[in-house]
Design a protein around this nucleic acid. Structure first.
Lengths: 252, 252
DNA sequence: CCGTCTTTGTGCACGCGTTCACAAAGACAT
DNA sequence: ATGTCTTTGTGAACGCGTGCACAAAGACGG
């Protein structure tokens, strides 16, 4: 996840597998929905379906947290919500700063999902002096000069970077120097951070490119199937693919 | 990735490993930067550093595409840019629709990274009649009623969902029925889709929760190290973690 | 033309994650 | 109290992904 370290077991000895941690928020969301509908208990099968995973995987995931289920019955929804929340650290308050209040930064500031689970937007920061003081999502934007002071005074340990790519590393360095140890990066750049700092990146462009790859593959297979064994030179063009560019069948 | 199918080899026989596909956009970005600086060739070591990965991994990744390097020299930047672009399907034009033009949808519409690599925003769609006709990022918003027509006329196969969670599944169903086979989902819900449809999700809330977990773990270790072997009943509270809730050491 | 030096491409081993399949555990009826 | 039935928790096997380490390939100088 983070950039500059291939070392470290990634999965701590005593701890929970990384893959499991990544799924806990999914379970938590499904459980919260059940809780709101006042459902008292849920089986691994039902919950797995709601979370979109395999039931065996879910049970194994929960087994890392302890034995919170009752055989023959299932899991107590409320209890499980609490346990997962505690495990994820959502029982405490996490002040967060968002740096770079452009289109995306503003959208993030307005995003309700932040506040819902213990995350609190402590400050919005932008390098543009014209933005300073202007309220976004009810919070006045502050200038980058204040960054260190804000981090320090609010005890911020999680930073969100929504700046242009060019500014991201510099902002990252300042955040880390000021004491931030977890960074969520929306800028399309690879961030280099010292050991002990976690970086997660969200990259729209990359996600789209991955989809495009699969889309192309699907179109290729389809064309292959359509053409059958007939090595026709005539290019077929179905209604969906806007381009007759059938990819070669992997050149050697 | 997609929800309703645990089956299928995931990694196609003749194809490229999924993990490699996910890294190709990273390499492409680094290579494009080199290309703009007119760097003719690059070694696996250099490129790996720029992309933030291991050089052995990079070489193995490229080996799936074919043998495009020259021993003793490295890789030809331009050639590699072309090969990866072709492999990812970026040499063709991908019309994309964005459904749900709220804060996030608008930010996505304005995001430059879309247009940069063959992705073209074909239409913006929103359920709010008041939005209809209003231009966002230079493109007039169209009403949901037009969805099927837009998909069909533009040959759209990739859809982006940026609606509230409640509307996401319904929108998804309509997109799929209209012929979309790849979906990028920003709504905090698990989408259920038929076989053959790819879904990738981007979930801010989940990313933050994962960071919070590691942050808590770091704080816990730190506190543990500070406390040393002394099994003090007094709860320590360091400056960063606003809560003394040190997680139990896995209750058997 | 030959030797040296750099860098690729890959065989191999290891570890994490996933899945199957089943025994143990408990609820519930009789 | 006992049997049945449901559902958990987990041992074990398997497969994918990663990283090491090295042989093969080619550039380049003499």
């Amino acid at each position: 996840m983070a950039t500059g370290r291939t070392h470290r077991p990634a999965t701590r000895s005593r701890g929970i597998p990384e893959a499991t941690v990544a799924r806990l928020p999914l379970y938590l969301r499904a459980l919260t929905a059940l809780s709101e509908r006042s459902v008292p208990t849920v089986s691994s099968e039902e919950l797995a379906a709601a979370a979109g995973v395999n039931s065996a995987k879910l049970r194994k995931d929960f087994s890392y947290l302890g034995s919170y289920g009752t055989r023959g019955v299932g899991y107590d929804v409320e209890y499980l919500v609490y346990q997962i929340s505690r495990e994820l650290g959502l029982t405490q308050d996490w002040p967060v700063v968002i740096v770079g209040i452009g289109n995306l930064g503003a959208a993030l500031a307005n995003y309700g999902g932040f506040a819902s689970r213990g995350f609190r937007v402590a400050a919005l920061i932008d390098a543009d002096p014209a933005m300073a003081g202007k309220p976004v999502a009810g919070i006045p934007v502050q200038h980058t000069d204040e960054l260190e002071k804000i981090i320090d005074e609010n005890g911020v340990s999680i930073g969100v970077i929504a700046t242009p790519a060019g500014a991201a590393q510099q902002v990252c360095d300042r955040l880390v120097a000021a004491g931030v140890t977890s960074i969520l990066n929306f800028a399309p750049t690879v961030l280099t951070v010292p050991d002990g700092v976690d970086v997660r990146k969200v990259d729209l462009s990359i996600e789209l490119q991955i989809l495009a790859f699969h889309e192309q593959r699907k179109a290729g297979e389809e064309a292959e199937a359509q053409a059958g064994a007939a090595a026709s030179a005539a290019q077929e063009n179905n209604g969906k693919g806007p381009d007759g560019d059938v990819p070669a069948v992997m050149p050697a």
